[in-house]
Design a protein around this nucleic acid. Structure first.
Length: 382
DNA sequence: ATGTGC
């Protein structure tokens, strides 16, 4: 059996900085068993063994490690009844904490989302760490009024964007199959391959339920009404068919471009974008970037932004776009790691994909309140 | 990413 390296199609311009480590990881991934094609997005960045911000298409073979532990991670956008000129400080107070175990009936909630997992009832409805968040945003600019109207987006009302995944459940799934799979991957039709797909689907449903419960808790505590506008997963494997038969698409930090409109978040100090995927999707493997993409590693961010005061870190501002955000995050190191300058320029990322004919911008949003965590128990130095 | 790792 021949093992020619996979073809890589890249969707970033020379203006976008790409880490050499990400390129090395990308090249390594071309050698994986069954790997046929890879699409690299402008938000590509180094990950645990393989890069985030890419899609990996393999024949016959599943690669759980490419998806990683946060199976089902994604973005949920909700309309809210909150006035876009709301007093943010007061709202932040009413929001309180959503870090703790949800007081409602998690068992019934999970059951109603076809995501029953008795061992994970205490964790559902929590955001988690890293780049996850629940963020209130307001419409910055409308490019396609008709589409915004169809989604029921009202410039007078704030929207809620939730970024979270399957928490520790997805991690347990990777642990269970990852070692068996290693870099060889798993034959998709094998018993273990089918078992992975079943558990992976469970993680995707659990992650969706988790985002729904986070949105619900946000609405509960701020006493507002919400309605889901869209929910998109950016870490998952799915089966596609071409003239050669089934092709396994591994999206790792890549949003699907074949499920309607896509929301692509920037950082806590930049715009986020609602876009319409265009083109036939073949070259970009039916996918788009999932965000700005990390530019500075977490450990480097701790040092690079170590001199900034907590006040500065909590109040990202950008006068040029009228951005004045408030970040609820009691962990100083996390604030540093999630600093806007630790990420690539989202406008560049969007511009690149536009120039490759992958999308049209529908609207942009700017953040007014980001919830990361009220808990400070994980904070290292200060 | 992770009720976190030695």
């Amino acid at each position: 059996m021949t093992n020619t390296p996979a073809r890589v199609d890249s969707f970033y311009s020379s203006k976008t900085w790409v880490s050499p480590d990400a390129i090395t990881q990308l090249r390594n991934a071309t050698q994986l068993p069954g790997m046929e094609r890879i699409a690299a997005m402008p938000d590509i960045h180094p990950g645990a063994g393989s890069p985030g911000g890419a899609v990996f298409a393999s024949r016959h073979i599943l690669h759980p490690k490419l998806i990683g532990g946060d199976i089902g991670c994604g973005m949920q956008l909700c309309r809210t009844s909150i006035d876009s000129r709301v007093n943010v400080r007061r709202l932040a107070e009413s929001l309180g904490s959503i870090d703790d175990v949800w007081e409602g009936n998690a068992r019934d909630f999970l059951k109603s989302h076809d995501a029953s997992l008795p061992d994970y009832e205490r964790v559902v409805g929590t955001i988690g760490g890293g780049n996850h968040f629940a963020e209130l945003q307001v419409i910055h600019e409308i490019h396609d009024a008709k589409s915004c109207c169809e989604l029921g987006l009202d410039p007078k009302k704030a929207v809620l964007l939730v970024h979270s995944g399957s928490r520790s459940y997805g991690q347990s799934v990777l642990q269970h199959y990852g070692s068996a799979a290693d870099r060889n991957g798993i034959e998709a039709t094998s018993e273990i391959g089918q078992a992975y797909l079943a558990d992976h689907q469970r993680a995707v449903r659990f992650a969706f339920a988790n985002r729904c419960l986070i949105s619900h808790r946000f609405a509960e505590q701020t006493e507002c009404d919400i309605e889901r506008v869209l929910d998109l997963c950016h870490n998952f494997v799915s089966e596609h068919f071409d003239d050669q038969g089934p092709l396994w698409l591994h999206r790792k930090g890549a949003a699907p471009a074949d499920q309607g409109l896509v929301v692509i978040p920037g950082s806590r100090s930049s715009l986020s974008y609602l876009v319409r995927p265009i083109g036939n999707g073949v070259a970009n493997l039916y996918s788009l970037a999932h965000g700005a993409g990390r530019k500075v590693s977490r450990s480097q961010s701790d040092e690079k932004f170590g001199q900034l005061s907590v006040e500065e870190l909590r109040r990202p501002r950008d006068k040029s776009i009228g951005l004045d955000n408030l970040v609820i995050c009691e962990q100083r190191n996390l604030l540093r790691q999630e600093h806007g300058k630790a990420y690539k320029d989202i406008d560049r990322v969007i511009e690149d994909m536009k120039s490759f004919g992958l999308l049209e911008v529908v609207a942009s949003f700017r953040p007014i309140l980001t919830y990361k965590t009220r808990s400070d128990c994980d904070d290292g130095d200060g």
